[in-house]
């Protein structure tokens, strides 16, 4: 018996419902790219030996930002900036605090691992349901994000023994925030036909692979990447 999966109801990218949800999701994406840009510049100051490379990453994030701005314009959507700033407040606060303390490991984990994997997962899940214009933009962005992830991965891998505990702590502190963030926008992502489950799974795949490459055992990866997942309150 051949049973095809229920096909997505045709998405009306011009409907009020879609554009309303998009105003928040797009704003979150823009804020994420904006903060990523700033974070890589901060990291460049903390790591003068890698300043060149990090400034390049920052420049790429800026291009992403502009790309996603054009996606909103294309759909005649005004991104909800205040919503997005509040959305990132806790995670960003942790990054800023770590930077102020000179805690490079935490900064790397938050930006180069967690935020990059979050972006990769969200963009991967978005691409099949995006409008044609946004799809092209996002496909280009995702390719970049994989290289960003790789940068953080390499840096942490080279210092695994010394940074191991720091990674575990930063993971324990920040991963639960990501799960809560995902839950908070579940209603909006559903409107965009992005499955929250799929985003989490995609995140865990990218994040788990990175942690494994950095030096953690499979058992550690499973425990770390699931941290706080089940206790995050569901709508």
């Amino acid at each position: 018996m051949n049973r095809t999966a229920p096909s997505s109801a045709a998405l009306d990218y011009r409907s009020d419902t879609y554009r309303d949800a998009y105003s928040r999701i797009n704003a979150i994406v823009l804020e994420g790219e904006r903060e990523a840009h700033a974070n890589y510049l901060t990291l460049a100051e903390m790591l003068p030996d890698h300043a060149e490379a990090l400034k390049k990453l920052a420049a790429m994030e800026n291009r992403h930002f502009k790309g996603f701005q054009s996606c909103a314009r294309n759909l005649e959507v005004t991104p909800d900036d205040p919503f997005a700033r509040a959305y990132f407040e806790q995670l960003d606060g942790n990054f800023q605090q770590a930077a102020a303390e000179g805690d490079l490991t935490t900064c790397m984990v938050i930006q180069a691992l967690i935020i990059e994997c979050f972006a990769i997962a969200a963009y991967n899940v978005y691409i099949p349901v995006a409008d044609a214009f946004a799809r092209k933009v996002t496909e280009g962005v995702v390719k970049d994000e994989y290289t960003h992830l790789n940068f953080g991965q390499q840096w942490l891998k080279e210092r695994f023994v010394t940074v191991r505990e720091g990674i575990e702590r930063a993971n324990a502190q920040n991963l639960p925030i990501v799960w809560r963030m995902l839950n908070a926008v579940e209603a909006d992502t559903e409107v965009l036909q992005m499955d929250k489950e799929a985003i989490v799974e995609d995140f865990m795949i990218a994040y788990g692979e990175a942690l494994g490459d950095i030096g953690f055992s499979m058992r550690d990866v499973m425990k770390m990447s699931a941290r706080g997942l089940a206790s995050a309150p569901r709508q």
């Binding site: 799974e201 865990m204 499979m218 499973m222 425990k223 089940a230």
Partner: peptide, 22 residues
């Protein structure tokens, strides 16, 4: 196997879980 996170949660958890080479 000692994976408490996976042991005590419902189907939702498995719906989100990635494949693992165990």
């Amino acid at each position: 196997l000692g994976y408490d996170e996976y042991a005590s949660h419902d189907l939702e958890f498995w719906c989100m879980a990635p494949p693992q080479a165990v």
